[in-house]
Design a protein around this nucleic acid. Structure first.
Lengths: 327, 327
DNA sequence: TTGAAAGCGCTAACAG
DNA sequence: CTGTTAGCGCTTTCAA
């Protein structure tokens, strides 16, 4: 920048203002500066600008695993919602590990990011807020501890799962199992709770062996289903905490020789693209990842604009059951 | 940092060294400093460190679209290969637009990233190098202009496509079409070339109407296939520039009432997870996205270590045909 | 309409 | 074994 200033015969201050437009610069000087900038191919150093302005035009996206098909759509929508404001996305994978979630939150703050969007599996908002400090814009999805310490995006799990259970009951199914994520991890726990409530509301009996924890993966679903389905009293249907698990259940049903949905009805959660592609096509609860990403962007932008003082917002995304072939 | 220094009764320099370990600090002082750091919950400002050291521990990943199922695995593998060295990934989506590709390259450099990994659709290595300057570590995949201006990751398209064409010919198929990506975009052009070479080697005739350009999406594949398959002289098989296109072709075949593979054989490219899940399961050329990400990390690390002087490397990833149900 | 000077928070000579 | 000083490249008072 000093070079540009020298070449254009002005002070660095003026170059800065000519580029930022933050104060008026005489038309002639401005043109001269812009020409010099082009000639010298000068590009502002954003690290220096970030240090000085205490804002980096970067927002952090913390996810369990970007390779899990649920998250990329969220990442893309977040990016698109923020790119017009000049933000770029810095990404971190946690695999749901509480230690990594915490470490990544700290690291992101140390990097001076302007906001954090987090799909949390193990860290509650209060804990996350404690780690990042009071002034960092923080929006979390999939986790609500009632602490009012971050902007929140929730999914109406109860509605979707209630709809699913009623749909099954309407087809005469009374024995419904649930395959959740790792013990204690959100959002599985919420969905499990919704399942308990929904079955109880219909007066359905639940055998404890029908409820099982596993990882949020296809392999996890396969392993869990293999256990549940080979028990003497297997359920007629299983609800799954996400679609990946449900696809694993489909695998297991095929391996065991169970027809879906005749012998076993399967319902997923999320409606990732693949859900409509597997065979049989998966009946699932729609929980749009792209919608979450878009809301991340909205809330972050609003929080950045209004500062830490404004009351925290909570948006709850609707869910709906999409009927396909598996149930 | 000044606060910590004051509280611990030492100079900032000593605090810096106590934390970085770059020079010896007396055990007692070090312990005192570390305690103070913990008490004050001090966290180094990485933006300031970045400005001073001219390195940000950040690498850029530029992809056409992170929501396209091919790229997340690459992103994850890149991240994993780099995270132990303390790097985080800054992501950019270009949609293959040359202008965006260029703009993103510039922006990343301005942000002082320590290296760039790019899945390029429209920008050749020479052009990218010109934009980022001579000293920025740059690894590109899917694009080679023979200019020796960046580290390169290539896929052995010819081998995989040759294998596919021979497999089709062995089943008695002689009329093979090719659905590519947008005109002129890599990697479609390379694959199209490989297809021409492979069919010619077997003496197969190609009708010009069997070769068509479209976007690298399921919808693109559907639209293109609808055109190709409704022509009077439709091919017996189509090769596709990627799996998403192939899945769209499957959709189109179903819509038209063509049985796959009996009436139409379909071969994809990439072997994304979904390829094995669709019905019929997709026969495709394996081109591991995770492998690309891992190589990105390797090459970037090596380049960062050795500096811009070392000769550019080029790794070519093997491909292989995986036989499933669609061909 | 423009400039001088200070400073964001750190690290690396240089010096002792 | 430790401290002083300078400076990374910007933006923003303050002053003219």
């Amino acid at each position: 920048m000093a070079e540009v200033a020298a070449a254009a015969g002005v002070s660095p201050t003026t170059v800065s203002h000519a580029l930022s437009g933050k104060r008026h610069v005489a038309e002639a000087t401005r043109e001269r500066i812009l020409r010099t900038v082009a000639e010298l191919d000068y590009r502002p150093n954003l690290v220096a600008r970030g240090l000085r302005k205490q804002e980096t035009q970067t927002i952090a996206l913390i996810v369990p695993d970007i390779a899990n098909p649920y998250y990329p759509a969220s990442a893309r929508a977040l990016n698109d919602g923020l790119s017009s404001a000049g933000y770029l996305t810095l990404i971190g994978n946690t695999d749901g590990d509480p230690g990594l979630e915490a470490a990544l939150l700290r690291d992101m703050v140390a990097r001076g990011i302007d906001g954090i969007a987090m799909h949390s599996l193990s860290t509650a908002p209060a804990k996350a807020r404690q780690i990042v400090g009071p002034s960092v814009p923080l929006v979390m999805a999939g986790s609500d501890d009632g602490s009012q310490s971050a902007d929140l995006i929730a999914t109406d799990d109860a509605a979707g799962i209630g709809e699913a259970v009623r749909h099954l009951a309407a087809s005469g199914i009374r024995d419904v199992g649930f395959i959740s994520g790792p013990e204690g991890q959100t959002p599985g726990v919420f969905r499990l709770t919704s399942y308990r409530a929904a079955t109880q509301a219909l007066g359905l009996h639940i055998d404890p062996s029908w409820i099982v924890n596993t990882t949020y993966t296809r392999d996890g679903g396969f392993a869990a289903a293999t256990r549940v389905l080979s028990a003497p009293t297997r359920p007629q249907a299983v609800l799954c905490a996400n679609d990946l698990i449900a696809i694993g259940v489909l695998d297991a049903a095929r391996a065991i020789g169970l027809r879906v949905p005749e012998d076993l009805a399967v319902v997923g959660f999320d409606d990732i693209e693949t859900a409509a592609l597997v065979s049989p096509r998966l009946t699932t609860v729609v929980n749009s990842s792209a919608m979450v990403g878009a809301r991340f962007a909205d809330l972050l932008l609003r929080r950045i604009e209004h500062g830490p003082g404004a009351p925290f917002e909570q948006v709850v995304l609707p869910t709906s059951l999409v009927l396909r072939e598996s149930a």
